[in-house]
Design a binder for these strands. Structure first.
Length: 150
DNA sequence: GCCAACGTTGGC
DNA sequence: GCCAACGTTGGC
């Protein structure tokens, strides 16, 4: 899950403990939240569009997809006139911080052939949420972070 | 700040 | 349904 640290970084999540992943306005990313992300699923927290892009922590889904309130808020930049409470268009999940990790930078990720097919590393990838292959998950956790995969 | 890549919009 | 134009993302 990508976030710009200037907007909401790992330290914000460390402070809040739990946060709603609102503001996603991309259909593919929405569908991942709506159709695939289950409570207890884990995710890498990735800092994007910043000086040192990369993975900085691990988060866990704490609430499944539900309508994103900002789509109904006329004052929000995420307002969507086509969305109604009866027919919401956008959803968000909630995630909690599992732990901060050492930063595993994008450049470092790219050096590992084992991770070459990671979606988040694909050229031109702009999706804020991408699935992580279990083998990639384990590799990063065990080999790059020195954690025990669960 | 630049620019490549991508998703969305809207004219036709 | 095609596709050009546009806006956004995000690494560098």
């Amino acid at each position: 899950m990508k976030s710009e640290p200037d907007a909401y970084g790992i330290d914000d999540l460390a402070r809040d403990g739990v946060t709603a992943w609102w503001g996603v306005r991309n259909y593919q990313a929405r569908n991942f939240m709506r159709d695939q992300m289950k409570v207890g699923d884990r995710a890498f927290f990735y800092h994007s569009n910043c000086k040192a892009p990369g993975i900085v922590g691990i988060a866990e889904v704490s609430r499944p997809a539900y309508p994103d309130a900002t789509q109904f808020d006329r004052k929000s930049r995420f307002f969507d006139a086509r969305a109604t409470p009866e027919n919401p268009r956008w959803v968000n999940v909630e995630v909690r911080l599992v732990k901060k990790t050492r930063p595993v930078g994008l450049a470092e990720l790219r050096t590992h052939a084992e991770l070459a097919t990671m979606r988040v590393l694909a050229t031109g990838n702009r999706l804020s949420i991408t699935p992580v292959d279990p083998a990639h998950w384990r590799f990063i956790l065990e080999r790059l972070m020195g954690e025990t995969a669960t």
